[in-house]
Structure formats: C-alpha cells, structure tokens
C-alpha cells in the first residue's frame, strides 16, 4: 500500500495557517515522510487539473484553510470534498469566517464601490472600472472568479468532518493533531466523532488564563491603548474588553499573557452557538450599573461592539451578516 495522501489548500485567508504548518518544525519531516503530499499550492507547484484527475475519495486528508469568498473558493471546496475521505476545516477562516468574514458588514456592491471607485488610491482614469468575470480579447476570452455577496464558512458550503480552530491554529496543537492522525492511520484506532473540534480544549480561554480574577464590577471600559493594565489581574476586571469568556480554550492563553485581551479567534466554547450573544451575556453580569442610562454610558464606550464580539465569527453567527433588508 502506498503512503496516505494529504492535501492542503488555502481559500480566502491570509496565509498564516500555512505558516503554522511549517512552524511545526522538524515534525514537518515526519509529515513528508508519512504522507504523500498530493496538493499544496502554497508550497509546491500543483494545478487544479491534478486534483480533478484524481479518483473520488483518493485523498485521505485535506486540511482546508480560508473562507469562501469567491466562486473559485467554492469550486475548490466542492472539488476537494469530493476527492477527500476526510475534510478538515483548518483555522478560523474555514471554521468561522474569521477576518474575511467581517466583509459581511457590507455587500458586494458597497465593497466594489469603495475598492474600485471611492478609495483614494484609485487613479481617476480607472475610477468605476469594475472587474468583469469574463472579458473578450482578440486572443480569446479571459475569465476571473466571481466575488460573492457574502463570505461563508467551509461548512456552510460543503460537508466538513473535523475542525481545527484558531487564527492561526497554534503549531503545537497542529503537530499534536497530525501525530494523532498518523497514529490512527498506523494502528487502525477509531476516528474521533464526526464534527469534532480537534487541536483545542473544551473550556474557555478564561480557564487557562493565569490572571487573577476578582468579583467583576465594570464601571468603565478602556481600549487597550488607554491604560497600562496591571500584569496579573484579569483584563476584563480592569475594564479592557477581553473576549476570553466567550472563546474556546486551546491556544494556551497567549494574548492575555502578553497583556493583550483575547480577541476570540478559537471560536465559540462548547455548547455555545453564537459568540457575540455569549459575550453580551457575560458582560451583562459584570457591568456595574442599575439604570438604563448608566448602562448606555458604559457600553457606549465600546467601539464597534459587533466587530468586537464577532471579530472572528460574524460569518458563522446566527445572523451571518449585516442585514440591509430592515432599513426603515
């Protein structure tokens, strides 16, 4: 029997997830040794036709990072789903939409208007020249992918077997998952249940945070640049909006140990569907106010609540995007 086949692909993403794979250091040699890497456009030269030519289910595992922004992303998601036994949403973009998902604050038209017309960096002569999916040239037709109105997650597009959260997933977690997979393939141990979150824990970021928590009573919120936080006290206690209570554990609480509040990249903790709703719930217990006016005064200091509570999960949230239908 040949080596198990591994594919890695990036859709709408920054490339950080690819770096995290390389960051597993010498264990990458085990990967190259154990697997036959059949598709990894970031690192090696492969063509989409190579994948199209494969049998269905020929690839054992595909690590898919990136959100679904364009028709090309969607095509590859469908293609890789068909060709893979196991499709893993790798990283926050594929899992939750992540930063690309924040484009769901807008729609295609308003994004195009800004990027190709209104942005100060657009030359006057090309203002309002919008990309066309197909252009006829004397030599023939040139096509580019279509830009969808809404960013989607991988599992809103195709069936997904497992998820590895994080922006990016921490490389020690990635290494652990890969070694576990190698072990499973070697020994025939049972696979985890379908839909399982791999490479993360089952608590919240607060659970692995070393900072000391007291009874929270927040009178005022501060943005990180407005105060110098005390080193060992909970950031939220100090009025810095930390998304730790609404975020899955597994990263090792890295940001909070660097005096930076958790931003929520590991997605919702177990048994939670909507990260923003969870954060609102957590905050409503700790804001120290007994009248609506007082509450307004305190929460109005939160710059961009939606973008903060759903920074990584707008596309996977219940509403999925900003609704333009309800303008009155």
């Amino acid at each position: 029997m040949g080596k198990p086949k591994l594919a890695l692909y990036w859709a709408a993403s920054c490339g950080g997830c690819e770096i995290t794979v390389v960051d597993i250091e010498e264990k990458i040699l085990d990967v190259a040794d154990f697997f036959d890497i059949v598709f990894w456009p970031c690192i090696m030269d492969f063509k989409y036709e190579d994948v199209e030519a494969m049998e269905d289910g020929e690839i054992d595992i595909t690590l898919f990072n990136g959100a679904i922004r364009t028709s090309e992303n969607e095509h590859l998601a469908k293609l890789l789903r068909k060709k893979s036994k196991l499709l893993i949403a790798f990283g926050s973009c594929a899992h939750d939409g992540c930063i690309p998902g924040l484009a769901n604050f807008y729609d295609k038209q308003s994004i195009f208007d800004y990027v190709y017309k209104e942005s100060p960096s657009v030359e006057e002569s090309s203002q309002g020249v919008f990309p066309q999916t197909s252009t006829k040239m004397p030599e023939g037709e040139i096509t580019i992918p279509e830009f969808w109105n809404t960013v989607k997650t991988l599992d809103q597009t195709v069936d997904v077997d497992y998820y590895i959260p994080g922006c990016p997933p921490q490389s020690f977690q990635v290494a652990a998952v890969i070694l576990a997979v190698i072990d499973i393939l070697k020994t025939g141990k049972p696979l985890p249940d379908k839909g399982a979150i791999l490479g993360a824990d089952n608590k919240t970021c607060c659970d692995e945070c070393p900072r000391e928590r007291k009874e929270k009573k927040i009178k005022e919120f501060f943005r990180p640049h407005e105060i110098i936080p005390k080193e060992d006290e909970c950031l939220l206690d100090q009025g810095i909006l930390c998304i730790g209570p609404a975020t899955r554990s597994g990263c090792g609480a890295l940001c909070v140990q660097a005096n930076v509040p958790c931003r929520g990249c590991y997605g919702v903790p177990p048994n939670v569907k909507d990260q923003g709703a969870k954060m609102i719930s957590a905050l409503s217990s700790v804001i120290d106010a007994t009248s609506p006016e007082e509450v307004s005064r305190i929460i109005n200091k939160i710059a961009d609540p939606l973008g903060t509570f759903y920074r990584f999960s707008l596309a996977s949230s219940t509403f999925k995007r900003v609704q333009f239908s309800d303008k009155t």
Binding site: G276, L283, S284, V295, I302, P305, G307, F309, T328
Partner: peptide
C-alpha cells in the same frame, strides 16, 4: 426592580437588552 424573585435577575436583563439593542442596530435590524 426590587421584585425579582432572584433579586438581581432583572438588572442583568436590563443591561443585556441595552447591549442587544446596540448590536442589533449594527446588524442592521431595527
């Protein structure tokens, strides 16, 4: 206020609804 069977539940509700309204507005929902 003052009548909640669980003492402070309704204060939490009030804070929650204020925050929900902010977020709903940003979601483009009246």
């Amino acid at each position: 206020f003052g009548d909640c069977h669980y003492l402070e539940g309704n204060f939490k509700t009030m804070r929650r609804i204020e925050m929900m309204k902010l977020v709903l507005k940003q979601f483009g929902i009246d």
